[in-house]
């Protein structure tokens, strides 16, 4: 499934949009209009560059509001030039987004219709509003519900990698603790703090080092965690050394045995502060 979808075509479409706006921008007589168009160009180009097939960058809220704000700005500053873009509003409603940005987009759409109203006159203005309403209804019918929070907490962050969000660690940890105790297996929680810009490369390297049945977790923007399983303490020692030798120089590492229930009996989101603070460079639990 993961290989079937190609981000490339969408990127091409984004860049084509940026190009057209860039052609349009120098032809604008007024400064605000041109400025907004250039902003649109930048937004589309940056989106195209950052676009990737993973949950690595969850859609940021201001990012989702940008198209609506730019469109409203253009229609407000120069209604006579961009009248036909009034019909872009249903498309902004079609974007996957939470309910409150949908409401803001609807309000902005109403506002830009109001900006156009003096040009249209009462009769056409009324018909335009009604037509816009019908199209908005279609867009809302077509809209997919944004992923519910529960779903988002359970998905892998990158297709094909056993890399999960922090919530998943909470669930997996107590299960693994019980299981290790039952099966007499030596389990360890690895906490790894790395510089922010190295997080994703380190996560990739770590995932490749793990057995297929071990999982890796992203706790925050600079902390990774992994559950390591070994037959006994001696094998665990070997694995620790092998792991540390292969990972790019990390800032801080800590291994906590799963049998240390006291230390681990806190929310997973507190692990980075509680278990990785102080000068415990390269200590082994």
């Amino acid at each position: 499934m993961q290989s079937k979808y190609k981000v490339g075509l969408m990127r091409l479409n984004l860049l084509a949009g940026a190009l057209l706006l860039a052609l349009l921008a120098p032809r604008q007589p007024q400064l605000p209009g041109a400025l907004l168009l250039w902003l649109g160009v930048v937004w589309l180009a940056v989106t195209a560059v950052l676009l990737e097939f993973s949950h690595r960058r969850p859609p940021l809220l201001p990012w989702q509001l940008m198209p609506g704000l730019l469109l409203a700005g253009l229609l407000w500053t120069a209604p006579e030039r961009y009248a036909l873009w009034l019909w872009l509003w249903p498309a902004t409603l079609l974007l996957p987004q939470p309910a409150w940005t949908l409401v803001i987009n609807l309000l902005l759409a109403t506002l830009s219709w109001w900006a156009l109203y003096p040009l249209l006159g009462p009769a056409q203005g009324l018909f335009a509003a009604l037509a816009l309403g019908v199209l908005a209804a279609m867009a809302i019918a077509r809209r997919r519900q944004p992923q519910q929070l529960v779903v988002r907490q359970r998905v892998r962050l990158v297709p094909g990698l056993p890399l999960w969000p922090a919530h998943q660690l909470q669930a997996d940890l107590s299960r693994e603790q019980a299981r290790c105790q039952r099966e007499g297996v030596h389990g360890e929680l690895l906490l790894l703090s790395v510089p922010r810009h190295q997080l994703w490369t380190t996560a990739r390297a770590l995932c490749h080092q793990l057995h297929e049945f071990e999982n890796c977790y992203r706790l925050d923007s600079r902390t990774l965690a992994a559950l390591l399983l070994s037959r006994d303490a001696a094998q665990a020692e070997q694995r620790r050394n092998a792991l540390l030798a292969d990972l790019p120089a990390p800032r801080r590492v800590r291994f906590v045995p799963l049998s240390a229930t006291d230390a681990l009996d806190i929310p997973a989101s507190d692990f980075p502060h509680q278990l990785l603070t102080g000068d415990r460079e390269l200590t082994h639990g």
Binding site: M1, K4, F53, L88, P159
Partner: peptide, 26 residues
């Protein structure tokens, strides 16, 4: 501006598609 509208409108569907495929894959 017609061509720009034509190019920008499908982006919403692209994004829907990407999100759906991503969810299926993860």
């Amino acid at each position: 501006s017609y061509l720009a509208a034509m190019t920008l409108v499908p982006l919403a569907l692209w994004e829907q598609r990407r999100q759906r495929a991503l969810l299926l894959a993860t």
